[in-house]
Design a protein around this nucleic acid. Structure first.
Length: 662
DNA sequence: GCAAGGTC
């Protein structure tokens, strides 16, 4: 019986009462009996086999499965699992794939059985949680191998491999020819659309030209206190409109309460974490990257303090004994009182989120107590997970708001003054990372007047979108449905390792710009999220038995081989400069500002893509500025240079233009 | 050397 990981093997052994634990060269294996027959439960550690090829260059469509520890770097740790299984297999009468019940688990077990044993003597078990009841039940009814999952899973591996390896190799060749530099480059179904999204955001931010807007800031006096009121209208585009409003408010000297609204808000507690939510929250609170969070969560898991972290689930299935966990948590310093309160009030069913995972429950504390000092970051993450779990059992918090609408009839503008208090804390007291702003305001009546103590004219600017962070790009990946819980953080790190991107606020490097440009010109499919959608459709068809794996792979090969041959032909027949023009990467000229390949002309300059876009935005926004606030071009660009929200490519253009005038 | 997906 093959388990997907050592801990799962231990759980299965426990449920099947296989108590004889032996050690095969560093791998723990359990032996027990089922109906008078010896059973052996042995673990792998995820995928033990990988696709590989001995061929160099591209196109390459000859691949086969081989042991990962041989073909992949940093996979030495898999050797012992491979050797232990290899030792055990010859003496088995039949084999059971007891890996997680999902497509990858089916592939992991299938590859091991087909390479080391015989799929004609193999079975599958289905269980969704590692609990004694469910494991015993699953093993009492062995199923035939789930061929549709296996076929669909194998196809996923192969499609990713032939696209990824071929486009990566082509990319390296093209890059070397165009830019005369040999670099390790990569492209893939998940990483390439992610790079393109980072680039979209980077260009939007760095070619941004702010536009001016105008509004007013009003303070009122009541009794001996002053209050700032909130504007219930959009800022004005014209300076005149704002000065007019200032004048009429000054003349009126007071605002009148035109409406009083009271409302009660019930705030539901958050559900327990899945990995994405944990990564986002930990980035927000502790500034940890998604990869760092996963690493720390992994350690907590291996120390038995929390459940399996690589999960998409926000649910705690009924098989998990919350009462036992809460009882254990009562001995935690500080947090124990909340566990006691939940037990006392019999609040024992948690709020759940919508996300599910076929293999694992939401992240929750196991109830085991930390035995040593965890260290700062690990302790903080553990506390976050425990507080989130505890919070999910509490009733909604209750917040009361009073909203006074203030008006000045002649000004035709509305303002508001909001008061807020927390009537019932409930989960807010344990999940202290969620803060509700408490605002004290006096009790006011309809028609009551408040004296205006100050009115100021305020100049505002439109703002660019912020550059992505590792957390926000992770969120984008999840929303776009690319990558998995276990891989997204790692794929983001790959983009950094390749030097396509850099910085905490993620900027795209020149290399990243070039790679994105080459890919979207020559291999557009791999830069779009739609490729994943297409894969998913095809894999579903395979799982439903409507098409064969071979048909789908052949289709991908024929499409790719046409594109790759085309690129190859161009590479061998063209000179470097011709090639750039031919691939739409250049006009044959250089950017007047930065010297990289120009893609267009504007105002007598030849410009690269970012500087061209910045130039166009600069010209377009000048019309807006002139219309709103009479200003000449020199003042316009000097103001822009001083603003931090002005994009860096825009500032490059301005500095270039200023130098040219000098 | 190159992917994405498991897990350590």
């Amino acid at each position: 019986m093959i388990a997907e990981k050592p801990r799962a093997a231990a759980k299965i052994a426990e449920a099947l009462e296989a108590r004889n634990k032996i050690n095969i060269d560093g791998v723990s294996v359990w032996i027990g009996k089922i109906r008078e027959k010896d059973v052996v439960i042995a673990p792998t550690a995820g995928h033990l086999y990988t696709l590989h090829t001995n061929e160099r260059g591209f196109p390459v469509f000859n691949y086969s499965w081989g042991p990962r520890w041989i073909y992949e770097k940093n996979s030495k740790h898999l050797e012992k699992f491979y050797k232990a299984l290899k030792k055990l297999f010859p003496s088995a009468e039949y084999y059971v794939n007891a890996c997680d019940y999902d497509v990858e688990g089916s592939v992991i077990g299938y590859n091991i059985i087909s390479n080391l044993g015989d799929v004609g003597r193999a079975y599958r078990v289905k269980f969704s949680t590692l609990t004694r009841e469910e494991i015993s039940r699953a093993f009492s009814s062995l199923q035939p191998l789930d061929w549709s999952n296996i076929e669909s899973g194998l196809a996923r591996h192969i499609l990713d491999w032939i696209w990824g390896i071929n486009v990566s190799r082509a990319l390296m060749s093209i890059y070397e020819k165009l830019f005369e530099e040999r670099l390790i480059l990569s492209a893939g179904r998940v990483q390439s659309p992610t790079l393109l999204e980072l680039l979209r955001r980077y260009l939007e931010r760095e070619t941004f030209v702010p536009e001016p807007m105008f509004t007013v800031s009003v303070r009122v006096r009541y009794g001996d206190r002053e209050y700032s009121v909130t504007n219930v209208f959009e800022p004005f585009k014209k300076l005149d409109s704002a000065t007019e409003l200032v004048k009429s408010l000054e003349e009126a000297g007071r605002l009148i309460i035109g409406n009083v609204e009271e409302r009660v808000l019930d705030l539901e507690p958050p559900p327990p974490f899945n990995l994405t939510q944990l990564q986002l929250e930990s980035a927000r609170l502790f500034r940890l990257s998604p990869a760092e969070t996963l690493k720390i969560a992994e350690e907590l898991y291996l120390e038995s303090l929390i459940s399996y972290p690589r999960t998409n689930s926000e649910k705690i299935p009924p098989s998990i004994d919350n009462t036992r966990i809460l009882k254990n948590l009562t001995s935690l310093p500080e947090l124990g009182v909340y566990a006691s309160e939940l037990l006392r009030r019999k609040l024992l069913s948690p709020r759940e989120g919508l996300n599910e995972d076929p293999a694992h429950p939401a992240i929750h504390p196991t109830g085991y107590m930390p035995t040593k000092n965890l260290g700062k970051e690990k302790a903080a993450l553990y506390e976050l997970i425990v507080r989130r779990y505890l919070a999910s059992f509490y009733p909604s918090a209750r917040v009361e708001e009073v909203i006074y609408t203030l008006e000045e009839p002649r000004a035709k503008c509305l303002f508001k003054l909001v008061g807020r208090k927390i009537v019932s804390q409930e989960w807010l007291k344990v999940y202290r990372y969620r803060k509700i702003d408490v605002i004290e305001v006096p009790t006011l009546r309809l028609g009551e007047e408040l004296k205006i103590s100050s009115v100021r004219l305020v100049k505002l600017y439109t703002h660019p979108p912020q550059l992505h962070t590792k957390a926000s790009i992770l969120k984008w990946m999840e929303a776009s449905g690319i990558g998995t819980e276990a891989t997204r953080a790692q794929i983001i790190e790959t983009l950094f390792e390749r030097r396509y991107v850099r910085g905490r606020r993620i900027a795209v490097t020149n290399l990243g710009l070039r790679v994105a440009h080459v890919l979207s010109t020559l291999f557009r499919d791999i830069t779009e999220v739609e490729l994943t959608r297409e894969f998913e459709r095809k894999l579903r068809e395979i799982a439903l038995g409507r098409v064969s794996r071979k048909e789908i792979i052949d289709e991908a090969i024929s499409k790719l081989s046409n594109e790759l041959e085309e690129v190859k032909k161009s590479l061998s027949s063209c000179r470097r400069s011709e090639l750039k023009v031919r691939f739409g990467l250049s006009t044959g000229f250089q950017c007047s500002i930065c010297g990289s390949d120009a893609v267009g002309r504007e105002g007598g300059l030849t410009l690269c893509y970012p500087h061209l876009r910045a130039y166009q935005n600069l010209v377009k926004a000048y019309d807006v500025w002139k219309a709103r606030n009479s200003i000449d071009f020199d003042d316009y660009v000097e103001t822009l240079l001083k603003l931090y929200i002005t994009g860096r490519f825009v500032k490059d253009v301005i500095k270039y233009l200023m130098n040219r005038v000098k």
